[in-house]
Write a protein that binds this DNA or RNA. Structure first.
Lengths: 226, 226
DNA sequence: GTTTTCCTTTCATCAACTGTAAGTGTTTTT
DNA sequence: AAAAACACTTACAGTTGATGAAAGGAAAAC
């Protein structure tokens, strides 16, 4: 059975949505605490996320962006009719569909089914700007090429991507690669970074890895200064 | 610029389609010889294929099926309004969209753009029943797992898939793996087949490899007898 | 029951990934 | 300007995993 996560703060609306979806044969998980929404969502690994943009305290946009960085579930955004401008914004952030509230039940269900069908059987790929990464095999897709990254390079890229434009500390990277906080050797990380850079350059990827002195590394913003 | 292949036998219709698409900024390739349509299409490697189902001599369905086995370009099927039943059939064969003729220009362009956007940045994956295969890296996707096949196993599976339910000869397989007709050693193929079988079984794939005595191998039909 | 064809396992070889080590650049600090 | 701290690169050896050869077992055809 397909699992859908509902992120909506208004009680009434949330229950109505859940009800509708359950009757349509989906398993529903409701998010009721709006701290670390992304984390909660990742934990229950839904097949689709229904996301209201107007949440108390947190930015729906921010959540959307984080989700697309850290998971590969499709996101269907709900927005009030008077915030149509949001749509474009949401789509840019990687939302797969949007709907205006209120909206007819059939319409909602149709979109839900449609989006899920589009993702049906699709591999679990992490989206980066202009490329995709399979988190299990570390197969990297760019344009029409695909390359298998060695495990370490893959893990590094995965961590960097999950941080978006922010820096990942060297410690984090080491943990991701070797599973321990004790530094095996800071240099080992260094070497693997060099190798990853080379493969990325070889593929013509626009994003580059830049060091943050004394902290770690991050991926450059799209048109970011070198 | 995106390239679209038009497969349509009626001259008038074909030119109208081509015109429309060219004005919309696409590069168009027309298929005018209806022998080995699939081969021609594979050669020009289009980003989308516009396929009329009523072709002289050949079955549009057959072409559709072959395309989905041998390429990963999206297929948009055109059918006359009085053959609505075809639609279901076409979708089952893996067509990504269908349209009834005649049809409004905007509608056609909208669907074309829509389908292409859906494929945008998507990796070049070959579709098998219930699984996907990356022809470059031989990454195999099933359910939510993904595994990297060793090159030889990948090549074998690729060839078998490209033959659909028909048998691939041992010679073909050897050529695909080692690039030569001279048998390196028939046993080498044997060994790799065994290994492929094992990995497929390990993943719980429904399709199995069955030998055709004295000829070669083929994948079992969905509910095929063992 | 014999022959042909197909299958499986084991073993040595080879290629690829990896960490170590040593040395070179490049910032920042003094 | 010199020193120190940090970042980068290259070369090399150990390990892991894929590959083909060989040998023997199973299944089908006759």
């Amino acid at each position: 059975m397909k699992r859908i996560a509902v992120v909506e703060d208004e009680l009434f609306m949330r229950e109505e949505l859940s009800d509708l979806l359950r009757k349509a044969g989906y398993e529903v998980r409701e998010i009721t605490e709006f701290l670390d929404v992304t984390g909660q969502l990742l934990l229950c690994s839904p097949d689709l996320i229904l996301l209201d943009l107007n949440l108390p305290g947190v930015s729906g946009f921010q959540i959307c962006r984080e989700l697309k960085q850290k998971s590969s579930a499709p996101v269907l955004v709900l927005t009030s009719r008077d915030q149509m401008r949001d749509e474009l914004h949401a789509l840019k952030l990687g939302a797969d569909e949007y709907l205006t509230k209120p909206c007819r039940k059939e319409r909602l269900l149709a979109r839900v089914a449609n989006v899920m069908k589009r993702y049906e059987g699709r591999p679990n790929l992490l989206e980066g700007p202009g490329f995709l990464l399979d988190r299990q095999t570390y197969t990297l897709y760019m344009d029409n090429q695909s390359v298998i990254l060695p495990k370490n390079q893959g893990r590094i890229l995965e961590v960097l991507m999950s941080h978006g434009d922010e820096a990942a500390t060297k410690e984090e990277l080491c943990v991701a690669i070797w599973g321990t906080t004790e530094f095996i050797d800071e240099n080992a990380l260094q070497v693997n970074l060099t190798r990853l850079k080379k493969t990325m350059a070889g593929l013509g990827m626009r994003r580059q890895i830049v060091p943050i002195r004394g902290v770690g590394y991050r991926l450059t913003e799209e048109g970011g200064a070198l």
